[in-house]
Design a protein around this nucleic acid. Structure first.
Lengths: 216, 216
DNA sequence: TATTTTTCGTTACAAGTTCTAACGCAACGG
DNA sequence: CCGTTGCGTTAGAACTTGTAACGAAAAATA
């Protein structure tokens, strides 16, 4: 009987510990932000001392990169789940908002302040393309009645980012609007820039979503 | 003759050194991000050793708070300058974009990933209100022809954030749209999420601005 | 002018952090 | 059974923020 799923016991243990490390890392990030992530603190929580973690991650940067990867993966899965019943921009929007509110720091790990030197590895940008593809599917399925926009034409001329997706210029423009507008509301809300202002952020989010889906 | 501007020589020197410290801090932040800001490195650059900086700033947090304050102040001044020739949403938008591109990390210091525990002091939120007031001025001066939005009505019922500004519900809604949409484009552009996609971010920014100013 | 007081910059040190190196032990594979 | 591989340890280097104590210089005061 070939080992289905269960590899060598050594490797099983290894992935188990790696998962536990990431678990603690997410807890720290959620409570104190990514910049306060401490390998020593994680090790202490796991009952082992300091440098043991370097058997599992080359360093702080690699751990954070791994967390960013998982965050992208999680968002991509959430998007896939939201479009399982067919392409639907509203479903995607609400899935995005729920995912973001579920762990704001995870959202900021992807869309927050970038580290000047950092460049994401290729497999992460591949997941980002996956997310964009799901969004483009939904945008392509939404009928456009208005006239083509000048920026839509520009996008049609520079559509390598669509990665071969057969979306109309209007759909390309809609995807970018969806992304930037919802991110605009979400990131300001999650960062607390609306707290104390009195209005309900989810209504603003919904208003932007309505404008995105009903018009043009 | 009373000393106009020139205080005691001691205090003059003090403010001079404080300014020099902040200068170096901005340089570090621009090149490596705020999380990499090192008091020791700044001290070494200024030719004095380590703990001397604590005569001028209580610690890293106070220095960063001061930088955040200066960033807000700078943005408020930029907005004031942009509306000197009268309230103009487009002028405000381009001023914002120029200011953001001028030092992306300064933009992220205000609108980037928040530190979970941090709460800005009152005088900083006061500057934020000042910025919002200038934006509301421009929005109130822009004529609205379309029907009142439901979210505009909601904003009219929760308008304490307008701080007594006599803006119409449509103007309130427009201000929020202006803020969130332009931030959406700008933050993603500055974070590099558009690099390699092929299109020109300034055209997307302009398209969003056009939508903001011509419609409704 | 002389004396007191305030402020500044220094060194020394404590308590953290990431990360490398060398060692011993335990478990896995042949 | 025994060798190889991998894991966790401690020691230590090179950093960081921040405190404490000291000396010197400058400013304020008598």
């Amino acid at each position: 009987m070939a080992q289905t799923g269960t590899k060598a016991p050594r490797e099983r243990y290894r992935t188990q510990v790696r998962a536990e490390i990431k678990e603690r890392a997410w807890e720290q990030i959620a409570t104190a932000g990514a910049s306060a992530l401490s390998l020593n603190a994680i090790a202490k929580q796991l009952g082992m001392s300091g440098p043991a973690l370097y058997r599992y991650f080359a360093g702080r940067d690699e751990l954070i990169t791994e967390l960013i990867r998982d965050a992208y993966r999680s968002l991509a899965d959430t998007f896939h789940a939201a479009s399982e019943t067919g392409p639907d921009l509203a479903a995607l929007a609400h899935a995005l908002r729920g995912w973001a509110l579920d762990d704001p720091q995870r959202y900021f790990l992807i869309y927050g302040t970038p580290v000047p030197g950092y460049h994401a590895p290729d497999d992460i940008t591949a997941i980002a393309s996956e997310i964009m593809a799901t969004l483009l599917d939904a945008c392509a399925a939404t009928p456009s009645d208005g006239p083509a926009t000048p920026f839509g034409a520009h996008l049609d001329e520079h559509r390598q980012w669509a990665d071969g997706h057969p979306a109309s210029p209007a759909a390309l423009h809609r995807a970018l609007r969806f992304w930037t507008r919802l991110h605009g509301v979400l990131s300001l809300e999650l960062a607390g820039h609306f707290t104390g202002m009195g209005f309900y952020p989810e209504l603003l989010f919904q208003a932007e979503l309505d404008d995105l889906t009903t018009k043009r």
